[in-house]
Write a protein that binds this DNA or RNA. Structure first.
Lengths: 106, 106
DNA sequence: TTGACATGCAGGTATTTACCTGCATATTAT
DNA sequence: ATAATATGCAGGTAAATACCTGCATGTCAA
């Protein structure tokens, strides 16, 4: 997984919206997805290309259509390698901050 | 939580590195953090400001120093509102794609 | 076959972003 | 008090980004 590509891809609201749309209904065509976005088809294509480069979306050509599917694996890896690390220390980190603040008051 | 600020903040490798550094040792000063980065102090400040705006980092002034603390809450919320949604559908989404690919071959 | 439809490809532009330098301010230590 | 230290603030620039328009290609249906 290219963590940077995944995070960069998730860093744009349009692309998160595209993932949301695919989560509602997987396997949509470019045209279907564009109907929900307020931008030119070509712009949406560029966003989808980034999602595909980040391996967050896979595509299948069917005739003249292009179907888009969510790939949840990178999101899972983001969680495993990134969020859980902080999650594990969550309580202890809050404890650090609390101690620091209390130390200031004394 | 401002999801956009959080995702944008996570979308830069320098800022992820800063979070990593704070995860290793919480409560570091700006100077300490800069020692690990290959850029001007002022640039690091701008990154830290974004992390603070996204509520991923909290700061405490102690004399002339500024201490930085990780706030894991937004990361947890990102996971809850974002990753888990896809996680739940993980297997079924992969199933959709598999079916589509198999359909093409027939 | 031909017209309609879905997508691909090639630039062009305005905004955002990630850096920088230079100088100011505030705190600590001698 | 003064020098060293830690950070704040104000621009300036080059690259990345998110849009766009115009045209080309490939597929389906009448």
């Amino acid at each position: 997984m290219d963590a940077d590509k995944v995070f960069k891809a998730l860093g744009d609201p349009t692309r998160r919206r595209l993932l949301d749309l695919l989560c509602e209904q997987n396997g949509q065509t470019l045209g279907q997805l564009c109907d929900h976005l307020d931008m030119a088809r070509q712009s949406a294509t560029q966003h989808l290309d980034l999602l595909e480069a980040a391996n967050l979306v896979s595509t299948v050509k069917r005739g003249r259509e292009k179907l888009h599917f969510i790939n949840p694996v990178p999101l899972h890896e983001v969680y495993e390698r990134w969020v859980r690390k902080f999650e594990r220390q969550r309580l202890s980190l809050l404890h650090d901050l609390k101690q620091e603040l209390e130390g200031e008051d004394q």
